[in-house]
Design a protein around this nucleic acid. Sequence first.
DNA 1: AACCTATATAGAGAGTTGTCTATTCATTAG
DNA 2: CTAATGAATAGACAACTCTCTATATAGGTT
Lengths: 118, 118
Amino acid sequence: MDNVTDCCAPAGDGAPPDCCAPIVDEPLTVERAERLAGRFGVLADPTRLRLLSLIGAKGEACAACEMVEPLGVSQPTVSHHLKILRQAGLVVSEKRGRWVYYRTVAQRLAALSRILQA
Amino acid sequence: MDNVTDCCAPAGDGAPPDCCAPIVDEPLTVERAERLAGRFGVLADPTRLRLLSLIGAKGEACAACEMVEPLGVSQPTVSHHLKILRQAGLVVSEKRGRWVYYRTVAQRLAALSRILQA
DNA sequence: AACCTATATAGAGAGTTGTCTATTCATTAG
DNA sequence: CTAATGAATAGACAACTCTCTATATAGGTT
């Protein structure tokens, strides 16, 4: 069910977390720095960025049928990266017929965007 | 003289590059994906994020005297990471007296922020 | 029910990265 | 000039990551 728990995840208890404050506002704790580094690490791979971009541009894309060929990497590699994007909450997947379709999660990208605001 | 040439660098010839367009707007080329991945890779390390955050929060910080101790890593490690941040254009350095002071470059962070806008 | 076929997992190997110690460089202070 | 000190570099090693091939799983299709 895809891990989406983290800073800036939809806060279940209504409290808007200040954890989305820009990095440069106040010194990061070790824990938060590690968490954020992991999040940016997800974006630190060209293949994942291209997947994200492809899905975002199309609005929706299916794993093998629309992504393997244009990316020029093997099917397991695509699957691997989609899993990482899913676990980071940057995409969600939905199975329809025999294919799995992916969509980006705008809120999650926006959350990261906010963290970098100067 | 710190490498600051890249997408979203101050465009010398006045042409505002569309390269800062959000990732999800249209499929990334291989080249741009690699460039962006490198940029996010700079942010994918807890020590670098803490440095960036520390410098940003203080407005200015000197390498050894203000950063080595609070980060709890060795001086060469700090120097190494500051070099990476400098090469990415995320900080600039200035020598005053016998110390080197660092400041963040708001535009660069903002550029990355924009790229993630959904 | 049997067979496809899309997707996921396992495991391995190559390359990259972060950290350290040791050393060098550079510049200021005395 | 010499000594001291802040900063950068060099080299090594461990840990992580990305990719692949081979294989397993799942669930539509006929």
